[in-house]
């Protein structure tokens, strides 16, 4: 067999299984929306908020399961409620936003774990699947739900792009120019919650932060405009989730962590070798050493 054929064979072999087709489809969609929506978190320095929302979806998911409602819906509602409570604590008391996030998300997370461990004894529901993802278990219904969420999220970002750009760059200037910034912020929270919910099956709530932040951060070191960060980030997200799936298939790794390791490796490459900001190459080569020198105490002092 020629090399080309071997490569093609390697590529197509997993695709003959319906479960791999389904999980790859979901992984690709999630890779795209996480990178796009996560770019907003990165530029607004709200990475921790992504973490907070993702940990907060658990109790909603459990309650929805108990009530027999779609767990995506329950998870989404819990994610949104957590952002409302965080905002409420932050504006109504001198508590800083990051402290509010820490308090709220660990409380929600604890409640979620308690609920799920209680109900998983008598039900077919596994806490680990939500914590670390269970992409090989995606159903046709999951593919459909993910596609609907992905379409909604991408449509919203496309239609509101110029408003969200202004708002995320200069919230005061945008508000003073007459944009409804409260609404834009709420919309952004909804997009993040939707994205987290769609990603649960792929990487789980603990590792989803990586898919939200790393692709955008990798792209940010390479290109200068937000829409370019999003497009390149989406490509990086897709590359990571697909390679992670193949790694998981051939080397028998857990798929969520495999995806996260790929995207982290891509970030490391960009960090070291980006022509614009790379530590080892690029215009400011040598800067780490100069920086180090300035950090050292000078002799006279």
């Amino acid at each position: 067999m020629s090399l080309e054929l071997a490569v093609l064979d390697w590529f197509f072999e997993p695709l003959q299984f319906a479960f791999m087709q389904r999980s790859l489809a979901v992984a690709i969609m999630v890779g795209i929306i996480c990178s796009v929506v996560g770019s907003y978190l990165m530029v607004q320095r709200l990475a921790l908020l992504g973490d907070a929302i993702s940990h907060s979806v658990l109790p909603g998911l459990a309650i929805a399961f108990l009530l027999g409602v779609n767990i995506f819906v329950g998870a989404f509602i819990a994610g949104v409620i957590s952002t409302v409570i965080i905002g409420w604590i932050h504006t109504r008391s001198p508590i800083k936003e990051d402290a509010a996030m820490g308090i709220v998300f660990s409380a929600f997370f604890a409640l979620g774990i308690t609920l799920i461990t209680t109900i998983q004894k008598d039900n077919k529901i596994d806490l680990n699947h939500f914590l670390f993802g269970n992409i090989l278990g995606v159903t046709v219904g999951d593919v459909r739900d993910t596609a609907i969420i992905a379409a909604l999220v991408l449509m919203a970002v496309f239609l509101l792009y110029k408003e969200l750009l202004f708002y995320s760059f200069d919230p005061l200037g945008a508000q003073a120019g007459g944009l409804p910034t409260g609404l834009l912020n709420a919309g952004l929270m909804v997009l993040i919650a939707l994205t987290v919910v769609a990603s649960m099956k792929v990487v789980g709530v603990i590792l989803v932060l990586s898919l939200l932040i790393a692709p955008g951060a990798t792209a940010y070191l390479l290109v200068p405009r937000l829409h370019q960060v999003m497009l390149l980030g989406a490509a990086i997200g897709v590359l990571s989730s697909v390679s992670g799936m193949y790694l998981s298939y051939y080397v028998n790794l857990p798929s969520g962590p495999a995806i996260v390791m790929v995207v982290s490796a891509l970030f490391a490459l960009s960090f070291l070798f980006s022509p614009r900001h790379g530590v080892l190459v690029g215009p400011r080569r040598g800067r780490p050493w100069q920086k180090l020198r300035t950090l050292l105490p000078s002799k006279g002092s």
Binding site: V43, K162, E163, L165, F166, F169, D170, G173, A174, G177, L179, Y220, V223, P224, R225, L226, Q228, V229
Partner: peptide, 13 residues
């Protein structure tokens, strides 16, 4: 991540 042009166009949003 915005260019000069991006910022000025914000004035037209």
């Amino acid at each position: 991540p915005a260019t000069v042009w991006d910022v000025v166009m914000m004035g037209r949003v």
